[in-house]
């Protein structure tokens, strides 16, 4: 493999990894605060893509579609948290897993009933002709994905480090009782983290839509996001990002070196290996598991 091929693969892995990282973040943020892992998060990605599709078909420009979609998805996340999740916070993990899984499937079924199994394009306001750097071709769509992910990660980091609300969320994830005693509304934090998680999922849907087209199966990438979150350790936001990018590279390179079969199973092999060897991930601590 020569240098330009390697560079090409590296960039492909980076852009797909950025999507995985986004969805992994969407999983980890509500999980850290409420202890509820959303097995239906993939369908929130699908939902976001279809909200964007609806808005875009209504004639809105891309620049308006993106923030509006995030807003609507955030509100949907809050509604789901209020109606279902808050009753489940103290439930056994089995109930949480199956209930969120079922919720996700309901969203997907509803979308499939309305839009059928068609593929819709989501137009982007820039040319999708690849840029050439020597023999390396770079698709602007992928550049936009990476750029948007970087911006989001920086904003999130600043939010959690410096803002009052972000600090409140970290406090709740460390100790709910103590946070409550400090006057933080734990329910408010649950609600906010679900809004953020769903909005990030929707953003991943919008960014991914030009690559795959919009169809009811777009949320199937959730399993990759789970793997990314496991690699990073479920308790770490930087871990989720690193895990996503690492998985993107692992998939891309294993596919290039050993063919599509290995590419398709590599994520799950990594998942099982990680769970066997280091279930708390690269960035987690052994005690982070919810008992």
């Amino acid at each position: 493999m020569d240098v330009s091929t390697a560079l090409q693969l590296l960039f492909s892995g980076l852009s797909i990894g950025a999507i995985y990282a986004l969805v992994a973040l969407a999983l980890v943020i509500p999980f850290k605060a409420s202890g509820v892992l959303n097995f239906g998060q993939g369908q929130m990605v699908t939902l976001g893509a279809y909200i964007a599709l609806t808005l875009s078909q209504a004639g809105l420009p891309y620049y308006a579609v993106v923030p509006l979609t995030l807003l609507i998805a955030g509100l949907a996340g809050m509604a789901i948290e209020r109606v279902f999740i808050r009753r489940l916070v103290r439930a056994p993990e089995f109930t949480i897993v199956i209930a969120t899984f079922a919720l996700g499937l309901m969203v997907q079924d509803a979308i499939r009933l309305h839009w059928q199994d068609n593929d819709f394009p989501l137009p982007v306001p820039f040319s999708t002709d690849p840029w050439r750097f020597g023999s390396v071709r770079v698709n602007p769509v992928f550049v936009w994905i990476v750029l948007a992910t970087v911006v989001l990660v920086v904003v999130l980091a600043a939010f959690f480090r410096h803002s009052r609300a972000g600090k409140a969320m970290r406090a709740v994830s460390q100790n709910q009782e103590a946070a409550r005693l400090m006057g933080i509304s734990v329910e408010g934090v649950f609600s906010a983290t679900w809004a953020i998680g769903t909005a990030i999922g929707a953003l991943a849907g919008i960014l991914f839509a030009p690559v795959t087209g919009i169809n009811p199966g777009i949320g199937d990438l959730i399993i990759k996001a789970f793997v990314a979150a496991v690699i990073g350790g479920f308790s770490s936001l930087p871990g989720a990002v690193v895990g996503g990018l690492a998985l993107g590279e692992i998939e891309t390179f294993s596919g290039a070196l050993a063919g599509s079969t290995l590419k398709n199973v590599s994520a799950f092999v990594v998942l099982i290996l990680m769970l066997l060897v280091r279930p708390y991930g690269l960035f987690g601590t052994a005690g982070a598991r919810r008992v």
Partner: peptide, 21 residues
Amino acid sequence: RLSGFYLALATLGFLEITEVV
């Protein structure tokens, strides 16, 4: 060695591997 969410993830991984195979 796993329980709860982690077990759910491992079984989900097994499901996907079987589908791919």
